[in-house]
Amino acid sequence: MLITCPYCGPRDVIEFTYQGDGNRERPDPASQNFEAWNAYVYDRLNPAGDHNEIWQHSGGCRAHLRVVRNTLTHEISSVAFVRGDHASAARRKAEDKA
């Protein structure tokens, strides 16, 4: 499985660390809403198909990435920086195949 890091280009999955379900929304740290916390910690969509995930390019640029991966085929349909302000750092077009 290859993940195309927006900064580094296509890299083997061994360079990446899975950081969990990308659909979760963390409650306000001060929140006492136990149902919201329970949902954040335990509730998962577990789809058979496209899944929003967070991966870190831990063996490369170390950026956190939003990845859409098909859980049936491992096909990756989109990769983007979690941090929006990193978008300008994406690999220039001439090096797309690097």
Partner: peptide, 22 residues
């Protein structure tokens, strides 16, 4: 130079990008 991982070297000093903004 522009772009991810861009860099240059004059044989004495060298610089290159290794991550966004780094």
């Amino acid at each position: 130079p522009d772009g991810a991982g861009g860099g240059s070297s004059d044989g004495v000093k060298s610089v290159f990008g290794f991550a966004p903004g780094k």
